[in-house]
Design a protein around this nucleic acid. Structure first.
Lengths: 142, 142
DNA sequence: TTCCTTGCAAAACTTTTGCATTAAA
DNA sequence: TTTAATGCAAAAGTTTTGCAAGGAA
């Protein structure tokens, strides 16, 4: 099993601590796999990724960790499509393209979307966030 | 088991046929339960609803039928939240409020939302539809 | 008859849980 | 030493599938 770069580890360490998450070996590995760049991974993909690195890790730990990361704001949990859910390493407010042909998710920047009108929330409720998914299909032959 | 109103049945019959769906007894029951008004039901709720009516129906038929209805455009399948999926009897284009405290879904009319800017789809792709979910929470004490 | 639909049970798949073991503070 | 995290297997929840039986055309 390859070691993680010590600079990277130190960086991730701070990031986890900053979110109140104790940095253990497994958590750092998961963080290093997921947090390196903006991406959308399923729990299964994270598990496979770590095992490919030669890491010994259980499914329970993957779910524990991903749920913990999501609860502490290190990642975001998405439900797009009706099967599994996705863990998004981009925690900035943003939206998504959903390619229905491949299932792929792509980020849409906040500044590419502007609302002219939004509904008033029902009395006693406030808006917690907005999920916007733009479904895409291959263009039919011209 | 109570009979369905014959006017209602005739109405549903036409509706199913219009979408290329052969109207069988189970399908008409499911349609009568779901299509009567705008609502969001899970497969389990539909099953329970039919059995409450004294109907003998299997889980497989519920899923077969709901998937068939969705594929033929009689209903819409939603994935909001990370657990089960919802079947929406409102097939007009519309959006949703999602009450995070109760899990409830509420329709948001198309005319309550207006976009000033939307991103260009990637080359070769076209927009198939837009899912907008406005997450709601109880207002914190003023 | 022929094709489609249904019921039942079992399978598949994703996520959670219980519990003994291990690692961290 | 005390608490928290991990691994494993099993359980739980949702959805699909295989197949025999039943129903419609």
């Amino acid at each position: 099993m390859t070691d993680l770069d010590s600079g990277v580890v130190e960086n991730l360490n701070q990031r986890l601590l900053g979110h109140g998450v104790r940095p253990t070996a497994q958590r750092l590995r998961i963080a290093s796999l997921l947090l390196g760049r903006p991406q959308h991974l399923s729990a299964e993909q994270v598990l496979a990724g770590l095992r490919n690195q030669g890491m010994r890790v259980s499914k329970a730990t993957i779910y524990n960790t991903l749920n913990l990361f999501a609860a502490s704001g290190l990642i975001r949990q998405l439900s797009v499509g009706n099967d599994r859910c996705w863990f998004d390493s981009n925690t900035d407010a943003h939206y998504h393209f959903h390619d229905l042909d491949t299932g792929a998710l792509m980020d849409v920047s906040l500044r590419d979307v502007e609302f002219q009108r939004l509904p008033e929330p029902p009395p006693g409720m406030q808006v917690d966030g907005i999920d916007l998914v733009i479904r895409l299909r291959r263009k039919s032959a011209a």
